[in-house]
Amino acid sequence: MSETATAPLQDHSDAAFDVFSRQCPSRGTLEHVTGRWGGLTLGALYESGARFNELRRRVDGVSEKMLSQTLHALERDGLVHRDAQLTNPPRVDYGLTPLGRQVAERLTALIELVEGRMPEVVEARARYDAAHGA
């Protein structure tokens, strides 16, 4: 476990956070949000809450282990809420917290921007590959 995961809780209510500082705890959260599986999981949950296997199908390519680790990290950061219902069989639903919803809203805007501008990206890649013999 990382140092920040085992460090005692501190009151950071008046602290200034700086993601560019290696000691800043915001760096880990940014990593969880912008990593491949974190970003896609938040984007999928922004559309609607989901059960684990629904998320796994929606986030094509993620393994069960990676999705589980991603959900745990996002839940620990306060972005995802896990609702375990004591039914038979057990049912676990995942959804966004209010903070998670704000983060996912901004992330979804970025996803839409990238998807909408992909023709330009594809052209840029082709030019680059042609110029660099790839």
Score class of each variant (00 low, 15 high):
93 D>T: 14
16 A>Y: 12
36 R>F: 04
132 H>W: 08
43 G>Q: 07
99 L>E: 06
97 T>S: 14
50 A>Q: 09
134 A>R: 15
108 T>E: 01
112 E>C: 05
109 A>Q: 04
31 E>W: 14
13 S>I: 02
51 R>D: 11
95 G>A: 12
79 L>N: 01
121 V>A: 12
127 R>K: 12
104 A>I: 14
99 L>Y: 03
115 E>N: 04
94 Y>E: 09
111 I>M: 00
52 F>Y: 11
31 E>D: 13
39 G>M: 12
28 G>M: 03
83 D>Q: 13
101 R>T: 05
83 D>G: 10
59 V>Q: 02
101 R>A: 05
121 V>Q: 02
21 S>R: 15
24 C>P: 03
24 C>R: 03
49 G>E: 15
124 A>N: 09
68 S>L: 07
129 D>V: 11
45 L>A: 00
122 V>A: 11
24 C>V: 03
1 M>H: 08
51 R>L: 06
76 R>P: 10
61 G>M: 06
31 E>H: 13
108 T>C: 00
53 N>D: 10
83 D>K: 12
133 G>K: 09
17 F>L: 05
126 A>W: 05
112 E>R: 11
91 R>F: 02
45 L>R: 02
47 E>M: 12
84 A>W: 11
82 R>I: 02
90 P>L: 15
37 W>R: 06
114 V>G: 02
98 P>L: 07
74 L>G: 11
112 E>G: 06
133 G>N: 14
66 M>S: 04
40 L>S: 12
2 S>Y: 08
110 L>A: 08
83 D>C: 08
77 D>H: 08
53 N>W: 04
26 S>F: 10
20 F>R: 07
90 P>T: 14
79 L>S: 01
73 A>H: 14
102 Q>G: 01
35 G>H: 02
14 D>Q: 14
2 S>H: 09
84 A>I: 11
27 R>T: 01
64 E>I: 02
31 E>S: 13
38 G>K: 05
131 A>E: 13
123 E>K: 12
78 G>R: 09
76 R>H: 13
24 C>Q: 04
28 G>I: 03
50 A>H: 05
120 E>K: 07
134 A>L: 15
77 D>W: 01
116 G>E: 01
56 R>N: 02
24 C>Y: 04
112 E>Y: 10
134 A>Y: 07
35 G>M: 02
105 E>V: 02
57 R>H: 13
39 G>D: 07
60 D>G: 05
30 L>A: 12
5 A>C: 09
127 R>C: 07
48 S>G: 01
126 A>Y: 08
36 R>I: 04
97 T>P: 08
6 T>C: 09
33 V>Q: 11
120 E>C: 03
1 M>S: 13
57 R>V: 15
39 G>P: 09
15 A>F: 06
99 L>G: 01
132 H>P: 15
38 G>D: 06
32 H>C: 06
121 V>C: 03
111 I>Q: 00
92 V>W: 05
80 V>Y: 07
72 H>R: 15
86 L>D: 10
129 D>P: 04
132 H>S: 15
4 T>P: 03
129 D>K: 11
100 G>W: 14
10 Q>A: 15
103 V>T: 14
43 G>M: 04
70 T>P: 00
18 D>Y: 14
70 T>S: 00
50 A>Y: 02
37 W>T: 08
15 A>T: 06
